[in-house]
């Protein structure tokens, strides 16, 4: 087997935009315009698992707000 697989070594971070849509992004890279850190860092799998736990309402924030009475 290959000794080093760079993919698995890459650290990721959990990010979100103003619509409270979550994604992952390489930990060392600057965020894209309009995205901010959620705070979690780790492997790709760890970040995705975290998102699975916290992203309960997948509606964009603007939609959620518009629907609130």
């Amino acid at each position: 087997m290959e000794s080093s697989e760079p993919e698995t070594q890459t650290l990721f971070k959990v990010v979100l935009n103003d619509e409270a849509q979550y994604s992952i992004w390489p930990a060392e890279r600057d965020n894209a315009l309009g995205w901010r850190d959620e705070g979690t860092r780790g492997t790709r799998e760890a970040c995705l698992e975290h998102i699975d736990r916290i992203w309960k309402d997948m509606r964009p924030l603007s939609v959620r707000r518009q629907m609130e009475p």
């Binding site: 959990v14 935009n17 849509q21 994604s23 992952i24 965020n31 315009l33 995205w35 992203w55």
Partner: peptide
Amino acid sequence: PAFTAERFLPDPFSPVPG
């Protein structure tokens, strides 16, 4: 949510925030 986050990434090249 996890599948979505894995496939729908921040677009670092777009002038539109978020």
